[in-house]
């Protein structure tokens, strides 16, 4: 997977992870992939729901040592 951009949103609380993810998404092109690192567990459900509503695709998500990783392809 080619990662176009990485956003480190660790330590941020809701709603900032999504606000920042949205802003980062606005800077990449359709088909490109944004990697997002988070620690707010609320994002576990909110990122996929937000991506779906915006027409983006979560290609992969994983948790490593309490950090959530999302790989979102811009729609």
């Amino acid at each position: 997977m080619d990662i176009t951009k990485t956003l480190d949103a660790k330590g941020l609380a809701c709603p900032m992870p999504i606000v920042k993810t949205k802003k980062a998404m606005d800077t990449i092109n359709s088909g490109e992939v944004l990697e997002v690192l988070l620690t707010d567990k609320g994002a576990l459900n909110d990122i996929p729901a937000w991506a779906k509503s915006g027409g983006h695709t979560v290609l992969e998500q994983k948790t490593e040592e309490d950090v959530l990783y999302f790989y979102i392809q811009k729609g």
Binding site: I18, V19, W50, S53
Partner: peptide, 8 residues
């Protein structure tokens, strides 16, 4: 019910 991420 409107999720906050739809109101950004």
């Amino acid at each position: 019910n409107i999720p906050y991420f739809e109101l950004l």
